[in-house]
Amino acid sequence: MMKTLTGLCAAVALLGGAGSAHAARDYVWAAGSSTVFPFATRVAENYARKSGMKAPNVEALGTGGGIKLFCSGVGDNFPDIANASRPMTQQEYDTCAANGVTDIVELKVGYDGIVIAADRSAPDYQFRLPHLYLALGANVLRGGKFVPNPYTNWNEIGPGLPNNRILVYGPPPTSGTRDAFVELGIEASARTYPTAAALRDRDQDEFKQMTHPLRREGWVDSGENDNAIVQTLTKTPGSLGVFGYSFLEENGDKVKAMSIDGIAPTVATIAQGTYPLSRSIFIYVKKAHVGVTLGLQEFTTEFTSDAATGRGGYLQSRGLIPLLPPEHEAVKAAAANMTTMSRPN
């Protein structure tokens, strides 16, 4: 009896926080990536239907915003899960640890690609990777020196590109899609230029300061709602949009994706990593909440199940590109055992 009371008091203290005494939440709370959002909401619906329990609360705050809230502390005022379209960084992990979030379970749930898309009636843009930095970087190289971006039209960037003004709608800085686009698109594009590559070898911080910022005119931050970007493309002739592959799948009747270096984003090219803007997507689970937040273990099990994220699972029809079977089995085992991650490299 004493052990039972001790465990109950610990749970109340854990989820109530200092100076409060209320019961643990009876629903799972997940926050983060807008790319992971449609997958997480579908899992939440199926979990609630199968279990008869409350559907989890899933919020689209962007990867950075979700991880920041997740790492802010332990208890029912903080999410159980952070949804992420990029890996957690060292700095984020250290912030978690400083706030008492010390046991984190990292679960890769699939792959996604970042697409550059336009309305279906738009011309095809045959992008090469170097075009992305020249078109969208705030500072670009001319004559071996970094200068404020002078380009206004796509045909100034490379031969064969349309004579349309550079206007790209994309995610804000809090978004994992933005982080991944800058890393996989802009940074990789900049490194194709010898001057930028030499700067990166000499001073990575200065390289990022010069190449990571996106231009103020030509790039438009469009919030965390990728569906809003899709709608904007259909109403703004000549514009392009940057968002996750899953939204391309859902809106293939309205928009089309552009190839990069001759490779179009498809399930096969993203899973194989041959499409230049391919990435992995994750959920991060707060182990301290397992057994306290009602249904957290069960929801995590559903998210990593064959039925959800396995090949032919119901998330594949929503645009998720599944892991290869051996990797998926390892993720299922990590979810079942709540195996905690190490500090990122």
Results as ranks from 00 to 15, higher is better:
1 M>K: 10
6 T>S: 06
8 L>V: 04
13 A>E: 15
13 A>I: 12
13 A>Y: 12
14 L>V: 12
17 G>S: 06
31 A>F: 04
48 A>P: 10
48 A>D: 10
54 K>R: 14
57 N>A: 09
57 N>Q: 10
58 V>R: 08
63 T>V: 00
63 T>R: 00
64 G>R: 02
72 S>D: 15
74 V>W: 09
75 G>D: 13
76 D>I: 13
76 D>H: 13
78 F>H: 08
79 P>V: 11
81 I>S: 02
84 A>Y: 02
85 S>T: 08
86 R>A: 11
87 P>R: 13
89 T>K: 13
90 Q>Y: 11
90 Q>A: 13
91 Q>R: 11
92 E>L: 07
93 Y>R: 13
95 T>C: 02
98 A>N: 06
98 A>R: 12
98 A>G: 09
99 N>F: 08
102 T>W: 01
103 D>G: 03
104 I>V: 13
105 V>R: 06
110 G>P: 14
114 I>C: 10
117 A>F: 03
117 A>W: 02
118 A>Q: 06
124 D>L: 14
126 Q>K: 04
127 F>C: 00
131 H>V: 07
141 L>P: 07
141 L>W: 05
144 G>W: 14
146 F>D: 05
148 P>N: 11
151 Y>G: 04
152 T>E: 08
152 T>H: 09
158 G>Q: 07
159 P>M: 04
161 L>I: 01
161 L>A: 02
164 N>G: 11
166 I>Q: 02
170 G>N: 05
173 P>H: 01
177 T>E: 06
178 R>E: 08
183 E>G: 02
188 A>Y: 07
194 P>K: 04
198 A>T: 13
200 R>S: 06
201 D>W: 03
201 D>I: 00
207 F>S: 02
208 K>T: 13
209 Q>A: 12
213 P>Q: 00
215 R>F: 06
215 R>C: 03
216 R>F: 08
217 E>Y: 08
217 E>N: 07
219 W>N: 06
224 E>G: 09
225 N>A: 14
226 D>K: 05
227 N>T: 13
229 I>F: 01
231 Q>C: 05
232 T>R: 12
233 L>I: 03
237 P>V: 01
239 S>F: 00
239 S>Y: 00
240 L>P: 11
241 G>D: 06
241 G>F: 07
253 D>K: 14
253 D>A: 12
255 V>D: 07
256 K>Y: 10
256 K>E: 05
257 A>R: 00
259 S>I: 03
260 I>P: 09
260 I>K: 02
264 A>D: 07
266 T>N: 09
269 T>P: 07
273 G>M: 04
273 G>Y: 01
273 G>R: 06
278 S>W: 11
278 S>T: 02
288 A>W: 04
291 G>M: 03
293 T>A: 09
297 Q>M: 15
306 D>I: 09
308 A>E: 11
310 G>E: 07
310 G>A: 04
314 Y>N: 06
316 Q>G: 12
317 S>Q: 14
320 L>E: 04
322 P>E: 10
323 L>Y: 06
325 P>H: 13
325 P>R: 05
326 P>W: 10
328 H>T: 02
330 A>W: 10
331 V>M: 15
340 T>A: 15
342 S>I: 00
